[in-house]
Design a binder for these strands. Sequence first.
DNA 1: CATGACGATTGACCTAGGTCAATGCATAAT
DNA 2: ATTATGCATTGACCTAGGTCAATCGTCATG
Lengths: 229, 229
Amino acid sequence: MMSSDLLHYASYDIAQEAKRLLEPYLMPRTLKAGTLLWREGDTDGMLVSIVSGKVKIFRILPDGKEITLYIFGDGVVFGFMPFLDGAPYPANAQAVVDTDVLAMPRSSLLQVIKKNPDVALILIQHLSKRLREAFDQIERRSSRGTLTKVASALLSLLPEGHGQRAGLIITLPLPSRDFASLLGITPESFSRSITKLAEEGTIERMPGTNRFHVQDIKRLEDVANLIVL
Amino acid sequence: MMSSDLLHYASYDIAQEAKRLLEPYLMPRTLKAGTLLWREGDTDGMLVSIVSGKVKIFRILPDGKEITLYIFGDGVVFGFMPFLDGAPYPANAQAVVDTDVLAMPRSSLLQVIKKNPDVALILIQHLSKRLREAFDQIERRSSRGTLTKVASALLSLLPEGHGQRAGLIITLPLPSRDFASLLGITPESFSRSITKLAEEGTIERMPGTNRFHVQDIKRLEDVANLIVL
DNA sequence: CATGACGATTGACCTAGGTCAATGCATAAT
DNA sequence: ATTATGCATTGACCTAGGTCAATCGTCATG
């Protein structure tokens, strides 16, 4: 089963704890939209904690297409992989909007780990989480049916307890083009799926915004779960 | 760029070191082909080191299709994720052939980690490796062109220094059906790609075996690299 | 207001590859 | 030897969805 953390915000204590430990070494820095933090293959980089903004982790295929692995949002800590196993960054990182971060150079991180082994445990948990998310990505990209992908993606964006909340409004945290890429589909396909959902009354577009009003959440869940018949 | 470790054998010191540390706690066990080591969602399991055999890590989609995430071979250590972050196993594990393993129950692993923090570092390296491989999977499944996938998969199975070795023989380590699933394609598509490669003289079938003779390695590399023109 | 620019949307088209079904080819079982 | 079983292969078919191109909105700029 997919846990469907499509967008990544730091949820809980792990990130907090990590930040507390690392704080003394973190340096504030502002990244203009479009800035590359590092490229796939780079061996030198930094550990980053996002204060506000969004960073996209992606790969470029030989034919030039890019595939988005993650979109990281406020509070997420990342960029530590090369420190852990010595191998280069496995993907590119780019700020998709103006982004404020706290950053720490390679050397400092190694110091901290030596001094405080607990940091290692925290990193392990981060890695585990990433790995689980990667599995979800694989599943997402392998399962067929764009409609399904879109529906489940929308569901994952619903605010907290969607028991029968009044405000069943979904806000895309990204331009739909980028969102589509995160789902491994084209913007056109994304749009078509939205149109289909709108036509059958499951959701309603809110023109001029990246928002949708959910009319029939039960139906949306059905579509997401591939209930064929 | 993909590192293309399609099949996973323990390559280097990490696994050795891990095994040395864990040895006292490991119990030999034999798994008949088809045995499930654990299911996705299980919270209780074990850490496993393969002595001989193969284990498939896979997920089942809601529609019943299964997607193969890894095939682990001799020497690989795996199954530790739930211990690290407390969450359940993210996928199923099944022996695909009769397999001899050394296994360690959950409780023991926790003890060892407490006693010897270095183990944590080793686990980190394992996790990093897995994560990188997962990215490769994502890339593999996202890139289009079955021919490309098959060609690069075959290349990754070539024995060591394929400078201009005499024996350019590729042996599929799995029935082609399973191999196809690892590539995220159907057995039929796999077969078709092989046929195409054979027709153009790039490889030659060796009937009755899971083997192929590579005639034109340069060409094979070109195909793998998507060199369109 | 007019113009441009950028993204979302829609339509028309086309193809890669999944599905289903038939056939072949081996080894295993009787 | 003969049948049975299981997988690989091939063929025919069909569709999801990628690609390309045209249109439409919306917002920013002069």
